[in-house]
């Protein structure tokens, strides 16, 4: 698929098939189009050419198709984007109640279950503003999971966090990956990529430059741009 912002060709001829249960990590320099790419998958951005098919449903201008896809695709943002006027529990129940029409009791039970999985059930009745960044991001993950999505998208979920909080979020993501969830993660956490990824994608200037399993990607990158990028990132 292709995407332009005005005249600017931001995504160039991207081609990717993700199998069920697959874990994809996307990395690449800032501005290379990683966010734009995964935001196309749930139509937060629209593409102009080519096809995006999610679980058999093609994304077009048709609002009903978009709704169907968004219901099955969970997303976690860099800046959490929790709803500050709702409690943690209400944040988690909102979409199941209003989109899936789950009965309240069931929605709350599910929400508590996922809050336990992200290890913060005791914060359920607090407001997002009362939690730390790491806790907020874990709530955001639980909120997305409450919709029982088939795919989870992560857009740099740890890059707005203080170092000591990164681990608690990554632990939750690793656990999620091990449970068999299909995941597409934009992240620069190479440890995470090595542990769970099935494939690592390297993007630069709107193109997918290289795709490889993690051990190959890190030990034996083929493209010059990838080598350069890895050198920079591993130096940190």
């Amino acid at each position: 698929m292709h995407k332009w912002y005005g005249k600017f060709h931001v995504l160039k001829d991207l081609n990717l098939t993700v199998e069920q249960g697959e874990r994809i990590v996307i990395c690449g320099p800032s501005g290379s189009g990683k966010s734009t790419f995964i935001r196309c998958i749930n139509r937060l951005e629209e593409h102009q050419q080519g096809q995006i098919i999610v679980d058999g449903v093609e994304l077009t201008d048709d609002l009903r198709q978009i709704d169907i896809v968004r219901r099955e695709v969970g997303m976690v943002f860099q800046h959490f984007n929790l709803f500050p006027h709702l409690t943690v529990l209400e944040n988690c129940c909102l979409a199941p109640l209003w989109v899936r029409k789950t009965p309240r009791r069931e929605a709350e039970a599910t929400a508590m279950e996922y809050l336990k999985r992200v290890k913060i059930p005791e914060q359920a009745h607090k407001y997002p503003g009362q939690l730390s960044g790491g806790q907020q991001q874990r709530v955001a993950i639980a909120r997305a999971l409450c919709m029982k999505p088939k795919v989870m998208l992560f857009d740099e979920p740890t890059s707005a966090l203080d170092p000591e909080m990164i681990k608690e979020v990554l632990d939750v993501m690793i656990e999620l990956a091990e449970s068999g969830m299909t995941m597409i993660c934009v992240t620069h956490e190479m440890g995470f990529a090595k542990t769970v990824a099935d494939r690592v994608l390297f993007m630069d200037a709107g193109e997918i430059v290289e795709t490889a399993p993690p051990h190959e990607f890190f030990s034996n990158p083929k493209e010059g741009r990838t080598q350069q990028f890895l050198k920079q990132i591993l130096h940190h």
Binding site: N42, D67, R70, F83, L94, W98, V99, M147
Partner: peptide, 30 residues
């Protein structure tokens, strides 16, 4: 209201009216 609020609501599958009524307006009006 930050753009992220609209995006998070959309990403959860809330349509325009639910997004406005449940997420955006309660915050904006307050």
């Amino acid at each position: 209201i930050p753009k992220g609020q609209y995006e998070a609501a959309s990403a959860l599958g809330l349509g325009y009216w639910k997004k406005m009524g449940l997420i955006i307006l309660p915050q904006a009006l307050t």
